[in-house]
């Protein structure tokens, strides 16, 4: 009797492990349109209304927990921001002069600078799910192909670039965040030369980005803004429209810049506390692009 129980237990355990390994292998080798992926998208689609409902119903719980967490950080941030405000006041005067100059120059070269996010047909979406592990930097939103969302559409939120759509079902979509290991964004440093590079997540640090492939002579300084370049080269076009803020340079080490051509960047968006995002469903609607010579 006992032997039979032991055999049955081992058989069940072996079966479960075998099924897991088979699923893992099959899924890993399959293309995104294969049956397993299709079934997965179908299940996400069925569950999305429940997730969306739970997310909205339990928002007060999240807010209360978030309030406690935020209060701890508020005092430190206040002191830091006061210093930044002082520095920004002095920069503002310089910037205002540059805006006037820029307007005049823009008119001269005939570029339409009035284009904003509205031109990219943004679709507002709520975050309904989030991956708790560090290994998949993804979020789920409550808008999908029925709302015009497509794979690779850029996603912005809280005043900066959040990521891009990686999976779409009719009423739900998965956003891969810019901190995911698979992401790389063509980005421009807002310095005098407008140096460009490729923004990638810092290896082993999911909250930090690296702007790589910068010219060794780039005049990068801490606090400088980093935005998307929106390049266009022949048929090849960037996924992201130009000028979307990504973050600020946090550490412009001269040695790192001279040796590796890279600086550290802090994302503008607090990716851990996103409640709502905007999906740019026509990212190439704008006519203005940085042309690669």
């Amino acid at each position: 009797m006992r032997d039979k129980q032991v055999r049955r237990r081992r058989a069940v355990l072996g079966l479960l492990v075998a099924v897991s390994v088979v699923l893992l292998t099959a899924y890993f080798r399959e293309s995104p349109n294969s049956p397993l992926h299709t079934v997965q998208r179908g299940i996400v689609e069925v569950l999305s209304p429940i997730q969306s409902g739970a997310s909205k119903a339990l928002k007060p719980v999240r807010d209360v927990a978030g309030w406690f967490s935020d209060t701890f950080q508020a005092k430190t941030q206040r002191d830091q921001l006061q210093k930044e405000v002082q520095a920004l006041h002095s920069e503002l005067a310089t910037a205002q002069r540059a805006v006037v100059e820029n307007r005049q120059l823009t008119k001269q070269v005939g570029l339409d600078n009035s284009i904003g996010v509205d031109a990219y047909h943004p679709v507002a979406a709520y975050v309904i799910g989030r991956d708790p592990t560090l290994w998949y930097a993804t979020i789920e939103v409550d808008k999908g192909s029925a709302d015009g969302v497509r794979v690779e559409d850029p996603v912005i939120g809280d005043g900066g670039l959040v990521g891009k759509i990686s999976t779409v079902a009719p009423t739900v979509a998965v956003v891969t965040l810019i901190t995911d290991h698979s992401m790389a964004v063509a980005a421009q440093l807002q310095d005098r030369g407008g140096d460009t590079g490729v923004l990638v997540p810092a290896v082993g640090n999911p909250d930090q980005l690296l702007l790589q492939d910068l010219p060794r002579t780039a005049a990068a300084q801490a606090g400088q803004e980093v935005v998307t370049t929106g390049f266009k080269y022949s048929q090849l076009e960037s996924l992201y429209p130009p000028g979307i803020p990504i973050g600020q340079v946090s550490n412009a080490n001269r040695d790192a810049l001279a040796n590796d051509g890279q600086v550290q960047v802090n994302p503008s968006v607090d990716l851990r506390h996103l409640d709502a995002v905007q999906i740019l469903t026509s990212p190439h609607a704008g006519g203005q692009r940085a042309q690669v010579p």
């Binding site: 099924v19 699923l23 893992l24 899924y27 997965q40 299940i43 569950l47 799910g129």
Partner: peptide, 12 residues
């Protein structure tokens, strides 16, 4: 399934 991750990893 819900997080659209590689199937089988978490279950294993």
């Amino acid at each position: 399934l819900v997080l659209v991750q590689t199937l089988g990893v978490t279950s294993l």
